[in-house]
Amino acid sequence: MSAETIQSRREWLLSDRPASRLQARLGRAYVAWRRFSANRLALVGMLIIIALLVVAAFADVLAPYSPTVGDLKNARLLPPGAAHWFGTDDLGRDIYSRIVYGARWTLYVVILVAIIAAPIGLLVGTIAGYAGGWTDTILMRITDIFLAFPKLVLALAFVAALGPGIENAVLAIAITSWPPYARIARAETLTVRNSDYIKAVQLMGASPFRIVLRHIMPLCISSLIIRVTLDMAGIILTAAGLGFLGLGAQPPLPEWGAMIASGRRFILDQWWVAAAPGAAILIVSLGFNLLGDGLRDALDPRSGDQ
């Protein structure tokens, strides 16, 4: 592509007079991308997350060994080396392969929690904020009850009630992580509900449901995306914590938290068993945090020309 066509495409995207719905939307996305990509660290974060996605998608190809079946006879607790990059654990399983497969479980947890918790929070928050009165009081007191417990303790209680297992861990984390989203969505809703543009839609005869869904929620979504992304690291750590306590993923599932837990026994002599999954959690958490910071710059409705 020549420099000129790139230049003209950029002008098309940044045009003040878009000629179609598509151009208007793409132009907006492009402005957000430019703000995002101006932040180097955010790009690093995005690269980490992309790498995580790639690893999870191609785990079968990338992993040289089985994640669950080890060579108990010959390969117990081998240190990192050419055959086993990150060494092997007490059951003779290749740690590198387990970490590669573990990426899938990490993504599984993170995405499911986000898909369950964010919409619940968004719905509760916008409805409470828009309706006000009794609805608001009741919904927000429920939110307060959830907020009153430390997240991990509450998740522990839920898992104890539901039984151990990664699905239940996801559910428990989701149930404990929606209240902050509800608070954010409510605060955003309160700032826009009395604005003239919401009144104008009321005067069109729109139902409250339509106003919340089509006019208020889109305004809350960007702050929610930012918050959820920043929370991802916390979700991973909570999942790892549950796994570590033996209440999350059950053996032989290659979940990073559970891996650390099983490595704890030989941490002084065979440090790599716990260190490798620990480093993986660290890097991915960092990636989500950096990405979240970048998204805040790019999506924040209060910044830039909105």
Partner: peptide, 27 residues
């Protein structure tokens, strides 16, 4: 009704097209 403040009466995330379509969709 037409409101006083032109800066506050249009939804910040919607195009003119979308703003004008909304009343039509509602009715």
């Amino acid at each position: 009704m037409v409101f006083q403040d032109p800066y506050g009466s249009l939804h910040p995330r919607q195009t003119v097209d979308r703003l004008l379509q909304e009343p039509l969709a509602i009715h």
